[in-house]
Amino acid sequence: MLKRALAIITLLIIGYWLAQGLAGVPFGEDRMLVAQYYLDHVKEQTGAVNTVTAVVVNYRGFDTLGEVTVLFIASTGVGALLWRKKRERTAKTEGSIVLTTGTRLLAPFIMLFGAYIFIHGHLTPGGGFPGGATIATAFLLLYMAFTVYEIPHKTFEKVEGAVGMAYVLVGLIGLAIGGYFLYDWIWQDWGFGVDNVGRLLSGGFIPVIYTIIGLKVGTELSGIIDNMLKEEVSE
């Protein structure tokens, strides 16, 4: 009991301290410095309408590269830790009629919607990560509905690796062509899609990278789901 009281007091003091700190950063004020530059130049420098996507992929592309690595580590780590010689799905109860037929109907459309999200990353909110997550939910639905369904584990790992390499290759091509790593050569050098900003075929290499990220996140999250759902079968 005493421990909880102590915890509450400590946390209140820390909370007060944080609040005092945050008071110096008043909510809702315009303190933009670098952000203003992004907003002013995003259209002509990257061709994307969605500034957040431009920042994520182009201006601060290095973060996203790290970001993709973090997710890759998560899936590899989960794979490494839950690795067993022989693993099977031990789910017993088949999904109810509503779930199975629903999944059979909806799964392809969910995947299509996921693809839509990451292809239109540079125009509409959301990008590679939400798109990939939606695709993963489709696979999760399949796992929940059918007790025997398993994603093709080996191929997913290969796809994951290949797509990851594709991402770095895009960066390296940028290094080769433009002399800078992760340089957007499609927009800066080829000038492809300069005229139709705001429509699908624009935004330099943002859609390319977002498709890569979408596929990667999709395969990785479903790989994690697959690892976690399987049990060790000892015979």
Partner: peptide, 22 residues
């Protein structure tokens, strides 16, 4: 080989890590 190739320090381990599953 201008200085920018130093970014290989980051790119090389990454691309080889992704290459391992293959």
């Amino acid at each position: 080989m201008n200085g920018q190739y130093a970014s290989l320090l980051i790119a090389l381990p990454l691309i080889s890590a992704f290459f391992v599953p293959l």
